[in-house]
Amino acid sequence: MTEKISFRSTSRTFDVGGKPFHALQSVDLDIADREFVTVVGPSGCGKSTLMNIAAGLIEPTGGEVLVDSRPVHGPSPERGVIFQQYALFPWLTVRENVEFGLRIAKVGRTERRRRAQHFIDLVGLTDFADVLPRMLSGGMKQRCAIARAYAVDPQVLLMDEPFGALDALTRVQMQDQLLATWGTEQRTVMFITHDVDEAVYLANRVVVMAARPGRVQEVIDVDLPYPRTEAVRLSPEFTRIRNRVWRAVYHQPVQEGLSR
């Protein structure tokens, strides 16, 4: 497999009260083409910073990040981003939100309509295509954000705790839907979460980060078959990997069955 995203000794310091703060220190990480990687770690360990650097929204202060072997400078529609806070355009309807990127790409009217409709249907917002975001529930907003990101057909999806604000049931539905579309469209996904179960359930590999300074603590392979189902979630193998990730996140052993 070829590398899609490569972090090369990527560092980022912030100036906090006159002193440099190492949000990320020399991160080396390769994400393969069409791989689904999840990133977990304690709050403030630099997960969002890492993702924003890959998105081109933050410049690294040291090292670099390559996408398709080219250094990233600034955002591009090649790399779709889904933010935790949905970040919909509240003055545009669901359809207009989804069409936003297509409009910028100068996709013609009929084609734009068709593609937007396809992704609106895909995320189940057909009946809400012409309402404003304020009329949507949290889960529906996030689905709209996903449709908007999909519509421009990015090769890479960067997702920052996208399901963090959702209730447990909606969250599971969204996870399954995400895996279903990933299975058919095979994009490269970098998915940040603070939920260890979610990290294991979705990923090919789980990247565990540690704080102060922000760094990659451990990368754990998830040797579970796709499609992931309820049966996978309940398998002893899943539990074993989940506990391993859990230990890596909290640097301490946990007893079987006592997680969460």
């Binding site: 981003v81 970040a87 355009f89």
Partner: peptide, 29 residues
């Protein structure tokens, strides 16, 4: 204007002019 909203437009390919016209103007109305 919310920084994330601007970023959301940028990652969809919006340049300065588009961000201004389609984000800043409506958001500050």
């Amino acid at each position: 204007v919310d920084k994330t909203t601007i970023n959301a437009a940028r990652v969809l390919g919006a340049g300065d002019a588009v961000v201004f016209r389609r984000i800043i103007v409506p958001a500050s109305t």
